[in-house]
Computed example of a mutant assay.
Amino acid sequence: MSAALPDTVADRAGINPVAKLAAASVLALGLIFSVDWVSALTALVLEIALLLVLRVPPRLMAVRGALVLLAAGLTAVTILLYGQSSGTVYWHFLLITVSDGSITLAAATFLRVLAIALPSVLLFIDTDPTELADGLGQVLRLPARFVVGALAGLRLVGLLRQDWQYLGFARRARGVADHARLRRVAGQAFALLVFAVRRGSTLATAMEARGFGAHPTRTWARPSPFGGREIALILAAFGIVAVAVGVSVGTGHWNFIGNL
């Protein structure tokens, strides 16, 4: 990373992306076995504390977490209206039933989606795709051909929007984009697919010619260190899951997902 970047970004970027991926996976796997609001809320509070320790700015957390909050809210509304009904029924219309059970389940689902998705989004705020590919290839020992190919494809995703604009300009210049909007969008989407396939084929041929398919001789330009900070982050994720589950079981709110 450049020295001109803020210290907070540089510090977070110093953590290997594989450790971030492992921590997010631990949190997700540890929270999917129960649907209760206690464990989700406990994990969410501890995750926010961990993100603050990692120096993620609160404003950035609020901005990036807005979409997660929206997704969690929409999921909770669906559970509220169509979830399992129990206890007092407050409103019923056709298939919609709002009851004590659906309200509790909706609240638990809302908190659980936040607890699972929020760290996954925020931990990868400043992760460079090249650094992630280096970690997957050097730390996890994934096949270099797969890793580098996926990285190259990911780098080309940003060109799709530019290609879509150029296709639109070209079709308007030829006078074929003034009518039948639905047909125009379908034809332009097919042309974009053809462009993507051609560019991918060209890139694959160029990479093959430069030796990217020779796995035994694959070398990495930059090392991907994995040390104490990475281990501490993964252990912190295990600790958050352990505390969340322990508090839920201790308070009697543990609700194994298989019992729903």
Score class of each variant (00 low, 15 high):
126 D>G: 13
122 L>M: 09
134 D>A: 07
106 A>R: 04
95 L>R: 10
98 V>Q: 11
94 L>W: 13
83 G>C: 08
96 I>S: 00
81 L>Y: 02
81 L>P: 01
113 V>P: 00
107 A>S: 08
125 I>Q: 12
94 L>D: 09
105 L>N: 14
119 P>W: 09
135 G>S: 05
135 G>E: 06
105 L>I: 11
98 V>I: 15
102 S>W: 05
110 F>N: 02
94 L>A: 10
122 L>F: 04
129 P>T: 14
122 L>I: 13
101 G>K: 09
106 A>Q: 04
120 S>R: 08
135 G>V: 02
101 G>C: 06
90 Y>F: 15
107 A>D: 02
103 I>G: 08
133 A>N: 11
90 Y>P: 01
94 L>F: 15
128 D>E: 14
133 A>R: 02
91 W>H: 09
104 T>K: 14
99 S>H: 07
105 L>V: 04
109 T>I: 00
99 S>Y: 07
87 G>D: 14
98 V>K: 10
83 G>H: 09
119 P>A: 05
103 I>C: 03
82 Y>C: 05
123 L>V: 07
117 A>N: 03
118 L>S: 06
105 L>Q: 13
117 A>Q: 14
134 D>T: 11
83 G>E: 03
127 T>S: 09
133 A>H: 02
86 S>P: 06
124 F>L: 14
97 T>H: 08
98 V>R: 07
90 Y>D: 14
99 S>N: 08
105 L>G: 06
127 T>L: 08
101 G>L: 07
85 S>M: 04
120 S>F: 14
122 L>T: 12
121 V>W: 03
102 S>Q: 08
116 I>C: 07
118 L>N: 03
126 D>W: 14
83 G>N: 10
86 S>Q: 13
91 W>Q: 13
85 S>W: 01
113 V>Y: 05
132 L>S: 00
93 F>V: 10
126 D>K: 00
102 S>A: 06
112 R>D: 08
80 L>Q: 05
116 I>N: 02
117 A>P: 02
120 S>Y: 07
131 E>I: 06
116 I>E: 01
113 V>C: 11
104 T>E: 13
119 P>H: 07
83 G>D: 02
107 A>K: 13
121 V>Y: 02
84 Q>H: 14
124 F>V: 07
130 T>S: 09
129 P>M: 08
122 L>H: 10
115 A>N: 05
82 Y>K: 05
93 F>M: 15
119 P>C: 04
115 A>V: 13
90 Y>L: 10
103 I>Y: 04
